[in-house]
């Protein structure tokens, strides 16, 4: 799990990021691809990691930071041990996804896009997962929960420990 690696925020070993960047650079791949792979490795993109990547790719830090903030799949914060993702696609919306997201925010005590301080939970909303038949959809650590009701949220949260 990438999330587990991010537990210690202070000391980050950037050598893996450098290695990934160097490998892609040799193949002529783009900075977006590098950042994607680096995020897969670390679970998120920290300042130190971004700096290392920029240096290795010989681009200004602002360019790496610009990409990391423009594209929504990049996260500058570590993700929680349990990553919860609520689909806010149109089909889920008309079936009440907003209420589900709100309930999760209430129950977990964090807003969408945040990670809890103890790094246990992180909550995120996405535009559409393409599983519209199952709407509203909540994905917890890659496991899909379909046709979620408020009561299902209680169960989902209870099972997170």
């Amino acid at each position: 799990m990438p999330g587990e690696k991010s537990a210690s925020v202070e000391e980050i070993d950037v050598s893996a990021a450098r290695k990934i960047a160097a490998g892609h650079r040799a193949q002529g791949n783009s900075l977006v691809t590098v950042l994607q792979d680096v995020q897969t490795e670390y679970g998120y993109l920290s300042g130190e990691v971004l700096e290392a990547v920029a240096e290795e790719m010989e681009v200004p830090f602002s360019q790496a930071y610009g990409l990391a903030t423009f594209y929504s799949s990049f996260s500058l914060q570590p993700r929680g041990k349990h990553h919860i993702c609520v689909c806010m696609g149109t089909a889920c919306h008309v079936r009440g996804a907003a209420n589900i997201l709100e309930k999760l925010e209430r129950d977990l005590g964090i807003s969408s896009g945040e990670t809890s301080e103890d790094l246990k939970h992180s909550l995120e909303s996405v535009n559409c997962l393409g599983a519209c038949a199952l709407g509203p959809v909540v994905v917890v650590n890659d496991a899909y929960h379909g046709k979620v009701s408020s009561r299902d949220v209680d169960k989902i949260v209870a099972d997170l420990e």
Binding site: L31, V32, N127
Partner: peptide, 20 residues
């Protein structure tokens, strides 16, 4: 990498080039 605008042709090409 999660940007709706990249479905637009010129934005998509910029994204492949590794840009915003």
């Amino acid at each position: 990498a999660g940007a709706f605008v990249c479905g637009e042709s010129t934005a998509l090409m910029a994204s492949i080039e590794g840009k915003i």
